[in-house]
Design a protein around this nucleic acid. Structure first.
Lengths: 144, 144
DNA sequence: ATTGAAGTGGGAAAAAGTGGGAATTAGCGG
DNA sequence: CCGCTAATTCCCACTTTTTCCCACTTCAAT
C-alpha cells in the first residue's frame, strides 16, 4: 500500500527519486501519465495494466472517449527506475504538472501522485477549508 | 502496448522515425491510414487485421458505412520500416494531416497516431482545459 | 564517531534520431 | 527495345539524447 507524502527535487536531467518506501512495491519499471488536477499519476506495472485495459475499451469512434484515451494513454510513459531509485520525467509531463525544483510525491493507496510543491500546498489548503462540506456530500450519495 | 508521445521530424524525403520503443511491437511493416481529428492512424499488421476485418463487416448498402470504410480502407497504405526505424508517409496522407517539419507520434494502446506538432498541441490544450468535466462525464455513464 | 541507507549530482558510454549520398528500380520517351 | 531521367530504397556517418554508473553528501541510528 502506497501512503504518505514526500518532498524530493527534480534535477537538471528531469529525474526524481522515488521514496525508498515505495520502491519495493513499484518495482523496477513504472508508468507515469497525466493525472487529474495538475498532477501526474504513477502506477506500478500491474496497476497500470488494470487501468489501461479499461481505457483500451473506450471506443475509437466516439469523440469524448477518444479524447480521454489520448490524454491518458498518449500522455503515458514507461519509466525505468535507475540504480539510485530515480525515474525520468518527460518534458511534456513536467510542463503539464508545472514541475520545477521541489516536487511532492504522494502515495494514494494503489497509485502515486507527483505534484509541484506549490500546487500541492495550494490544493491541500483548499481541501482543508472545505473538507467538512465535501465529506457531507459524499455521505449523502452513499459513497461512504 | 503502445503509449507515450514523441516529437520527431518529417524530413525532405517524407520520412519519420518511429519511436524506438514502438519498433519491436510494430514489426518491419505497418499500415498507415486516415485518422479521426486530423491525424493519421498507424497499425501493426496484426492490429490492422483486426481493425480492417471489423470495417469489412460494415454493410455495403448503407451509405454512411460505405463512406467510413472507403475513408479508412481506401486511404490505407503499407509502409515498410527502414533500417533506421523510419517509414515513408505518402503525399496524400501527409497533406490530409497537414504534416510538415515537426510531427508528434503518440501511442494509444493498440494504435499509433501521427499529428502535426501544431494540431497536436492545439488539440491537447483544448482537452486539458476540459479534462475535468470530461472525466466526470465518463464516470457518470459508467465508462470508467 | 562510525556505519549504513537515502538522496543528489555529474561524467562516460551507448543508443536513437537525422541527414545525405550511392545504388537500385521504375517510369517514360525515343 | 534501349537509354535517359526520376524516384525510391538502402546504407553510412554525424549529432544529440538517453542510459548507466560512480562518487559525494546528508541524515539517522547505533
Amino acid at each position: 500500500m502506497l501512503i504518505g507524502e514526500y518532498t524530493h527535487s527534480l534535477d537538471e536531467k528531469n529525474r526524481v527519486s522515488l521514496p525508498s518506501k515505495f520502491r519495493r512495491e513499484l518495482g523496477r519499471k513504472v508508468i507515469v501519465t497525466h493525472g487529474l488536477d495538475t498532477c501526474l499519476f504513477l502506477f506500478s506495472e500491474s496497476e497500470w495494466k488494470k487501468f489501461s485495459e479499461k481505457l483500451s475499451g473506450l471506443s475509437l469512434v466516439q469523440r469524448d472517449k477518444r479524447k480521454f484515451s489520448r490524454f491518458m494513454l498518449g500522455g503515458a510513459t514507461e519509466a525505468g527506475v535507475d540504480g539510485a531509485g530515480r525515474i525520468l520525467i518527460p518534458d511534456f509531463l513536467k510542463e503539464f504538472a508545472g514541475l520545477k525544483g521541489k516536487v511532492v510525491i504522494a502515495g494514494i493507496y494503489s497509485r502515486v501522485e507527483i505534484w509541484s510543491e506549490k500546487s500541492w500546498s495550494a490544493y491541500k489548503k483548499s481541501v482543508e477549508k472545505n473538507i467538512d462540506i465535501l465529506s457531507e456530500k459524499l455521505g449523502e450519495v452513499g459513497a461512504l
